[in-house]
Amino acid sequence: MASQGTKRSYEQMETDGERQNATEIRASVGKMIDGIGRFYIQMCTELKLSDYEGRLIQNSLTIERMVLSAFDERRNKYLEEHPSAGKDPKKTGGPIYKRVDRKWMRELVLYDKEEIRRIWRQANNGDDATAGLTHMMIWHSNLNDTTYQRTRALVRTGMDPRMCSLMQGSTLPRRSGAAGAAVKGVGTMVMELIRMIKRGINDRNFWRGENGRKTRSAYERMCNILKGKFQTAAQRAMMDQVRESRNPGNAEIEDLIFLARSALILRGSVAHKSCLPACVYGPAVASGYDFEKEGYSLVGIDPFKLLQNSQVYSLIRPNENPAHKSQLVWMACNSAAFEDLRVLSFIRGTKVSPRGKLSTRGVQIASNENMDAMESSTLELRSRYWAIRTRSGGNTNQQRASAGQISVQPAFSVQRNLPFDKPTIMAAFTGNTEGRTSDMRAEIIRMMEGAKPEEMSFQGRGVFELSDERAANPIVPSFDMSNEGSYFFGDNAEEYDN
Rank of each mutant, 00 (worst) to 15 (best):
A2C: 01
Q4A: 06
G5E: 00
G5W: 14
T6M: 04
K7N: 12
K7D: 02
K7M: 01
K7C: 05
S9K: 00
Y10H: 14
E11F: 03
E11Y: 05
Q12V: 05
M13V: 05
E14P: 00
T15V: 08
T15D: 02
D16E: 14
E18V: 15
E18C: 07
R19K: 05
Q20I: 01
N21Y: 03
N21C: 11
A22C: 01
T23W: 06
T23N: 12
S28I: 01
S28P: 00
V29A: 14
V29E: 04
K31M: 11
K31S: 08
G35H: 12
G35K: 08
I36F: 15
I36T: 14
R38Y: 07
F39E: 09
Y40A: 14
I41S: 15
Q42C: 12
M43T: 14
M43E: 08
C44V: 07
K48L: 11
K48E: 02
K48F: 06
L49G: 04
L49C: 09
L49D: 03
S50A: 15
G54V: 05
I57G: 13
Q58L: 06
N59P: 07
S60A: 09
L61G: 11
L61A: 07
L61H: 09
T62E: 13
E64I: 13
R65I: 01
M66K: 11
V67D: 09
L68A: 10
F71W: 08
E73H: 05
E73P: 00
R74D: 14
R75G: 07
K77M: 14
K77Q: 11
E80L: 08
E80T: 13
E80I: 12
P83I: 07
P83M: 12
S84R: 00
A85Q: 14
A85Y: 11
G86Q: 09
K87S: 09
K87I: 08
K91G: 03
G93T: 10
P95F: 02
P95E: 03
I96N: 05
Y97W: 05
R106Q: 07
E107L: 09
L108H: 11
Y111T: 15
D112T: 04
K113D: 08
K113C: 03
K113E: 07
E114T: 07
E114R: 01
E115M: 10
I116N: 12
R118S: 06
Q122I: 15
N125G: 11
D127T: 14
D128F: 14
A129V: 13
T130W: 10
G132E: 05
G132P: 06
G132K: 03
T134L: 05
H135N: 11
H135D: 05
M137A: 03
M137E: 08
I138D: 09
H140L: 06
S141Q: 03
N142E: 07
N144I: 10
D145T: 12
T146K: 07
T147P: 04
Q149W: 11
R150M: 08
T151D: 08
A153R: 07
V155Q: 10
R156G: 06
R156T: 09
R156I: 07
T157E: 00
G158E: 04
M163Q: 08
C164Q: 09
M167W: 10
Q168Y: 05
S170I: 05
R175C: 03
G177P: 00
A178P: 12
A179S: 12
A179R: 02
G180Q: 10
A181M: 15
A181S: 12
A182S: 11
A182N: 14
V183G: 05
V183S: 08
K184N: 04
G185M: 05
V186Q: 15
T188K: 09
V190A: 15
M191Q: 11
L193G: 12
R195D: 05
M196L: 09
M196W: 03
K198N: 11
G200P: 05
N202E: 02
N202A: 11
D203P: 06
F206V: 08
F206H: 12
W207G: 06
W207Y: 13
R208V: 01
E210S: 07
E210K: 09
N211Y: 13
G212Q: 07
R213W: 08
R213T: 11
K214C: 04
S217G: 02
R221N: 09
M222Y: 14
C223T: 05
C223M: 13
C223K: 09
N224G: 02
I225Y: 08
L226G: 10
G228I: 06
K229I: 05
K229E: 04
K229W: 12
A233D: 01
Q235L: 14
Q235D: 04
R236N: 06
A237S: 15
A237I: 01
M239T: 07
D240L: 10
V242I: 11
S245K: 03
R246G: 04
R246C: 12
N247G: 13
P248K: 03
P248A: 15
N250D: 07
N250L: 06
N250Y: 03
I253F: 12
I253S: 04
E254F: 14
I257Q: 03
I257K: 02
F258V: 11
A260C: 09
A260F: 07
R261V: 04
S262W: 06
S262N: 11
S262C: 08
A263P: 00
A263N: 14
R267G: 06
R267K: 15
V270H: 12
H272F: 05
S274C: 10
L276I: 10
L276S: 12
C279A: 13
V280F: 02
Y281C: 03
Y281H: 07
G282H: 12
G282M: 10
A286G: 13
A286D: 10
A286I: 03
G288T: 03
Y289N: 08
E294P: 00
S297W: 05
V299T: 06
D302L: 10
D302V: 06
P303S: 11
P303R: 05
F304K: 03
K305H: 10
K305P: 05
K305R: 15
L306H: 05
Q308V: 11
S310T: 13
V312Q: 13
Y313L: 07
Y313I: 10
S314M: 03
I316E: 05
E320W: 09
N321W: 10
A323N: 13
H324I: 06
S326L: 07
V329M: 15
W330E: 02
M331W: 06
A332H: 09
N334Q: 08
A337T: 10
E339H: 04
E339R: 00
D340C: 10
V343D: 03
V343E: 04
L344E: 08
S345N: 12
F346H: 06
I347W: 02
R348M: 07
G349M: 07
G349E: 11
G349N: 06
T350F: 15
R355V: 09
G356H: 10
S359R: 15
R361A: 03
R361E: 06
Q364W: 05
Q364V: 12
S367W: 11
S367C: 04
S367H: 05
N368D: 01
E369Y: 14
N370G: 02
M371L: 15
A373C: 08
S377Y: 03
T378D: 08
T378R: 15
E380Q: 15
L381Y: 01
S383P: 01
S383G: 12
R384G: 11
W386H: 14
R389I: 01
R389E: 08
R389P: 01
T390K: 07
R391P: 01
G394N: 10
T396D: 01
A401D: 01
A401Y: 04
S402Q: 13
V408N: 08
Q409N: 06
S413Q: 07
F420G: 01
D421K: 00
T424I: 07
F429D: 01
G435F: 10
G435S: 09
T437D: 15
D439H: 11
D439S: 00
R441I: 10
A442N: 14
I445N: 03
I445G: 08
R446P: 00
R446M: 10
M447P: 03
M448H: 05
E449Q: 09
E449F: 04
K452Y: 12
S457Y: 00
F458I: 10
Q459D: 03
Q459T: 12
G460Q: 06
R461K: 10
V463L: 11
F464K: 00
E465M: 15
L466T: 08
E469R: 06
E469F: 00
A471N: 01
A471Y: 15
A472G: 06
I475D: 05
V476Y: 12
V476T: 08
P477E: 00
P477H: 03
P477S: 01
D480M: 05
S482L: 00
N483T: 03
E484F: 05
S486W: 02
F488N: 03
F488C: 14
F489R: 00
N492L: 06
N492F: 02
A493I: 02
A493V: 12
Y496W: 14
D497F: 12
